[in-house]
Design a binder for these strands. Structure first.
Lengths: 243, 243
DNA sequence: CCAATAGTGTCTGTTAGACAATATACA
DNA sequence: TGTATATTGTCTAACAGACACTATTGG
């Protein structure tokens, strides 16, 4: 980087805006949800009143790095401090923001819906969960290029759920295997075989028993916690290892 | 994004630098190579004389978007216009560049080594291919955080090679199946079974016959081209489709 | 006919998906 | 004992890895 043609060290050329946006996913009522915020209508900023991903400019004084910035946004909106957080990608162009050349760094977070208190502003309706479904994804109503970013995030999530333990981050601990299976099914949008699912989960060896959990009725299920919340598990893949 | 606290529309706060860096990979002499450029020693810029990834500041006037910027860097260094290009991720922090808060958008490109003419500057040795091996990856000699970016890129490449047709972009067309297999083996760093490899490639149905190719001796192999250079093929994965 | 590489066939252990059976609670 | 959910077991078709074999060229 930084092979500048001029011998000057001033670096006084136009700089794009740098922002961070966060896709915050959870599961509520057997549906995948994403957090959106409504943009202000009275400040002269772009896309007044439109729904957008939570995010904003990198604060050079507050944010040590991009991920810290993403965590700050998440904390400000949900109060959640320790989510699963992954970088999704970046989107930058001259056209995406009417104020000028801008580049956003998108992250996506997976959190459990319990214990989340949405941070409302003056307007009580300016932060809300939206169900991730065709209407939301097809609708072009989101601010900026946030619809495209959301589509990319959902695609990435669905893709990774096929071979990782990511859905476990969408549930409060302890959770049961039937709950986890339902979460997989919700994200994937298709049923999963019970027996194979259990075999797979146990073979991955990432769950620790946490005692039987009480349920509404019938046989009480075993509760589980993640052995290591820090890193998700990857299930075996194609081109399997050989000598 | 852009939920600024002040009602001002001036956006006149400090902006980080925005750069793009490109990991340019190819295969030469049965070894994976990456292109590095040597930083100038006489302009007062950071890391003088150190090797670095090709890249630099986004030019708000020249670059319509981030990918266009990456393509420009690639073209300037190699003359290659149509590589496989994929976004790798972004790295941004207050500390990574001594000149101030900066964020770089990293891309990685796969190109065939034939027909590449390295763009040399005044110093003929300032652009060169480096073999991607333990010495290079372990050495902390690269400028900025480029060693970390390189490690991430190699990891991503190795990972995706397990289940995609990416290595095909490292070869000039037409290529033969033995050549392609050798390329897989070079990137993966382990042997691959011939029969299974062929079955897999043919089943993926992404190669078009391009006539028998002459070789040094022995039985001449069939040459192939990609049916669609635009999109790589993904081989089947875990959690295979069910009704 | 031999050597060298290209390409195909076969065998077998493993596994994922489908589905059946059992276990454990409450009413 | 009945019912609903949790959990485990079984059966089988498909497939991947290992390895052997055939094909085609040049010498």
């Amino acid at each position: 980087m930084a092979t500048r043609k001029t011998a000057s060290t001033k670096n006084d050329f136009p700089r794009p805006f740098t922002t961070v946006d966060v896709l915050i996913f959870t599961v509520i009522d057997d549906a995948l949800k994403v957090l959106l915020v409504q943009r202000p209508s009275d400040t002269g900023e772009p896309h007044p009143g439109a729904w957008a991903l939570p995010g904003g400019f990198v604060n050079v004084d507050l944010d040590a790095d991009l991920e810290a910035c993403a965590r700050r946004k998440l904390r400000e909106k949900t109060g959640v401090a320790s989510p699963y957080l992954e970088q999704l990608g970046s989107w930058g162009s001259a056209a995406r923001d009417p104020r000028g050349w801008s580049a956003t760094h998108a992250y996506f977070a997976l959190i459990a819906s319990d214990g989340v208190t949405l941070a409302k502003g003056a307007n009580a309706a300016d932060v809300a969960w939206f169900t991730v479904d065709q209407p939301l994804l097809a609708k072009k109503k989101l601010a900026f290029d946030h619809a495209a970013i959301l589509r990319a995030g959902v695609e990435r999530l669905r893709s990774k759920v096929e071979y990782t333990s990511l859905p476990a981050y969408l549930l409060p601990e302890p959770f049961t295997l039937p709950q986890l299976q339902r979460t997989y099914e919700v994200v994937l949008g298709r049923p999963v075989d019970k027996s194979g699912f259990r075999t797979r989960m146990m073979a991955a060896d990432f769950l620790a028993e946490a005692g039987v959990v009480e349920s509404d009725s019938n046989r009480p299920p075993m509760g589980y916690r993640l052995k290591d919340r820090g890193t998700p598990v990857f299930f075996p893949r194609t081109f399997s290892p050989r000598g």
